[in-house]
Design a protein around this nucleic acid. Structure first.
Lengths: 252, 252
DNA sequence: CGTAGACTATGACGTAACGAGAGAGTCAAC
DNA sequence: GTTGACTCTCTCGTTACGTCATAGTCTACG
């Protein structure tokens, strides 16, 4: 028998939330003390877990109630309907993002950032340096436009662009850091690594497997990189290198 | 000078909405009759249009107020911040969709459609065939699980699933066909192409750029595909191929 | 001029899922 | 018996309005 705060601490929700769930009949405690204290059993906890799962995938509390209270409820059907709904929402978001993008572009017109500004305080700049090392190599293998275009890319980034890039970078690093307890060959990890390569390609230059391998080594060899990456987790650079190499081995 | 209902009818919002905007000071009528009737000018209408635009891209009313009321407000900055927010929301949705998908798959296990049923009348089946051509190639490059999982996917689709897939496919083709007068590199066209690639990934197999390029060629080389695609518009397959190749060039 | 019908106004409650108090009672330890 | 940690039940606030309810206004028609 657990009291509210215990339950709250165990599963990571607020006491208020439990009160609320009690109030709407979604999760009622097994028993109540004479003083009116709520007492939950472990089977109550199980139900709470289920509630949280459905909440995570976007079900409303009412929908969750339906799904959990009626054993004959067609869960699969509910999930599929729900998925359609989610996809529509995503479509809405895609459209919105697209419109915002267009608006931004129309607002822009000559505000590209100067190199001076760009160099200030952004470690990201180092990736560009790395690019130069490989520039010749790349130039041999790919049509000129590809490379030129890529170089033109970063030269027009504004401070905000760099900010965005930094944020997205941090996110990817973070996602990988979160999974450092897994094997570097873990599918989710590999997927993030793929996103990283793709990200470099989209924002800096066409990132070939050779370059990617080169980057992997650079991350542990060059202290500037290592320091920056390990901010996200002790030994991330080492781990990342392994994962990247595995990725390259599997894909080329 | 327009009265509330006129304004409401003109721009397509409810009278209540206008009341609300008045109340929160977002859009106040130019003048008020002795009887208390709201009277809007055409400049009020213009502001309303702006409000609706920002609303469409997901700004809150308070944010809109900030943007419109302060001429020195950095609109571009606001838009970029907003875009980040939207992207985060989309990421959340993506994750949710992914989880729902996995849950559905785990629930399925005995209700998969038989191959017999599946083959009947669904041209979509051909995409799967195409997959097989690339299966070996893909298998070399990606971790086994990825491919296996993908193959498991289609084998469990029900008739309804295929129906849905057909519908979504038609929608995307249709959207592209509608824009065939534009350059294949047109952003909207490219966006649809991106959706198509994403769609294949979600419903069939991890669609790499190589595969996507392969599909592009297949659409014009294989008469079964060509015929099917050109149903949506004369020469769509040719057009689609160009657009897909451009997409690949820009993204990889 | 009286009235029906269309339009207008201002509240006020409801929505979803809680967060943030307020005021008050309960429990265990010292 | 008091303190501190915890519990309870209201109640308001949040977003962008929808939906009444009640009441005043305007205009056309008989």
């Amino acid at each position: 028998m657990y009291k509210v705060k215990e339950v709250a601490d165990i599963v990571g929700v607020s006491v208020r939330t439990l009160h609320h769930y009690d109030q709407i009949g979604l999760l009622q405690p097994e028993s109540i003390t004479p003083a009116g204290y709520r007492l939950y059993t472990s089977s109550n906890l199980e139900r709470l877990q289920q509630i949280l799962f459905f909440k995570e995938i976007g079900f409303s509390l009412q929908e969750i109630k339906n799904v959990l209270d009626q054993p004959d409820f067609d869960r699969k059907e509910a999930l599929k309907l729900h998925k359609d709904l989610l996809k529509k929402k995503r479509q809405r978001l895609d459209d919105m993002i697209h419109t915002v993008d267009q608006t931004i572009q129309s607002l822009e017109g000559g505000t590209a950032m100067t190199n001076e500004d760009m160099f200030k305080g952004f470690d990201m700049k180092e990736i560009e340096e790395h690019q130069k090392k490989y520039a010749d190599e790349v130039r041999e293998k790919y049509p000129k436009e590809t490379v030129d275009q890529a170089q033109a890319k970063t030269s027009q980034y504004t401070k905000d662009d760099w900010q965005n890039i930094m944020e997205e970078t941090n996110e990817i690093y973070g996602n990988i850091a979160k999974r450092m307890d897994r094997d570097p060959a873990d599918p989710e990890v590999q997927q993030e690594v793929g996103k990283w390569k793709q990200f470099i390609t989209e924002n800096f230059y066409y990132c070939t497997f050779e370059i990617f391998r080169g980057l992997a080594d650079l991350y542990v060899d060059d202290p500037r990189f290592t320091k920056n990456i390990d901010k996200h987790g002790e030994g991330l650079s080492q781990y990342l290198r392994k994962a990247m190499i595995i990725y390259c081995d599997n894909h080329s």
